[in-house]
Design a protein around this nucleic acid. Structure first.
Lengths: 256, 256
DNA sequence: GAGTGGTCTAGACCACGGG
DNA sequence: CCGTGGTCTAGACCACTCT
């Protein structure tokens, strides 16, 4: 059992730090980044769950919870009786639907440079969509931030985030990461619900993304909630679907 | 504890049958359908996990696994210290991305009538997409079934499924459910990976869906695998995004 | 048969919020 | 405070694959 982890990739010291969240999440991130940067090759086999538990010094249940996330991201494939294997990744950018978090982090993990260009920042009267999603009246104001996201110099997405004024009173202070500012002010979302649809780009959106007017794009609306259940973020993102792929694993029903 | 389940909604006899799959999955389906048909109202609270475990006569871990699926479907919301609540459902058709399986079942649960019109059935030479997804050579043939899906008389989606010839040698025998035929022949997919993109509809597709040429639609490519890991199904679905919404819950990172 | 993932249990402690 | 969900454990048994 001692020769099965030559790089010490799975020792607790390699992935666990106190205060950075639950073990299963940190272990998930550790393995996930090992796959992203090639330390774990495509089609290679992960250690059996029982070994992994012993190597990482956690229970098997915790290992399974970490691996389950890798599976739902499409990064790992499990076959009963056989083992757990790293899935080969396609050439297109693939983003997991179950862990859509930071554009910047995602591109970093793929070895891409990323940049954001702020298109708009300020306080405005809410649109009906925003009123409903954030649960505020039309007499209140919302902070709005609109950004154009680039990767390796190519425009990839337009993201417009709206938040209640009391959550983000000074939107002009947001420079890079919205979530960083929110955490400093004591509250980033703990949960979110996404809705995915397809739209035809308007002329000005198409221009920004370097596409033709009317081109199809993915629209992902995300409503983020504090742990208390209060909605504090409504983000509408338009993604170039010729570059992005959104991926999810799907568990089909058992015997019926 | 005995007065907290007046309808006996959670007793084992109400949801568990031997041979129909794991307990957490059956319990999930039971609660899910209770929400879909209104037996559990929006904003109502589920029993605490510990009570639910006792009522259903399973361990709390099993209850949590069932509830976790409801959460990822966007059907239930959990708040630490407060409880688990049934989420209010929007007016649009919302389909969970983590359980995208049967069009027919989904519409049934929503009280919609559904119908399928077969556009094409037969054996053909594989396209490059199909060759790659199914891992077959270009000299073999694939069974193809193309269907137009209606709900309440409105065209909703076009689905084209391709399978290796040895899996589905007689495609013309598929009448209603592809999966039913596969199960009879000894093998429906156990796992699947989905890729979601947006596309502009071609003229003939648009006509079928009652939309204008070039209208944006969601394209969902699903590759289904046997338990052995062999890919046996490649389905490309085009969904009207003016009617459908695809929904997913999203867990954001913990403290950082 | 040996090894793998899949399911399930009973119990513990923590973090958070206001029934 | 007590009740809630969140995390984690050690161990058991089953179903399946591979050889």
């Amino acid at each position: 059992m001692d020769g099965s982890d030559p790089d010490g990739l799975y020792g607790p010291a390699r992935w666990y730090r106190d205060g950075l969240g639950p073990r299963y999440r940190q272990l998930y991130r550790h393995i996930s980044s090992a796959i992203a940067d090639g330390r774990l090759e495509a089609d290679s086999q992960l250690p059996p769950e029982r070994d992994l538990a012993e190597l990482a010094d956690v229970s098997r249940v915790t290992v399974r919870k970490a691996v389950a996330q890798l599976v739902s991201d499409g990064l790992v494939e499990q076959r009963r009786g056989a083992g757990s294997f790293v899935r080969a990744q396609g050439p297109k950018l693939e983003q997991s639907l179950s862990t859509l978090t930071s554009f910047t982090e995602y591109m970093l993990a793929r070895g891409k440079s990323s940049a954001s260009q702020v298109l708009l920042r300020g306080l405005f009267a809410p649109t009906p969509d925003e009123s409903i999603a954030l649960g505020i009246s039309s007499s209140e104001r919302v902070a709005r931030i609109e950004r154009l996201r680039h990767a390796d110099g190519v425009p990839m997405a337009i993201e417009r985030s709206s938040l209640p004024e009391d959550i983000l009173p000074y939107p002009e202070r947001v420079e890079t990461s919205l979530y960083t500012v929110l955490r400093e002010n004591g509250g980033a979302p703990a949960r979110a619900i996404q809705r995915i649809t397809a739209i035809n780009l308007a002329a000005h959106e198409a221009r920004l993304l370097n596409l033709a007017e009317g081109a199809a794009a993915l629209r992902i609306d995300r409503t983020g909630y504090l742990a208390s259940g209060r909605p504090i973020e409504f983000t509408r993102g338009l993604y170039r679907s010729d570059i992005y792929d959104f991926v999810a694993e799907l568990r089909l029903d058992g015997p019926s």
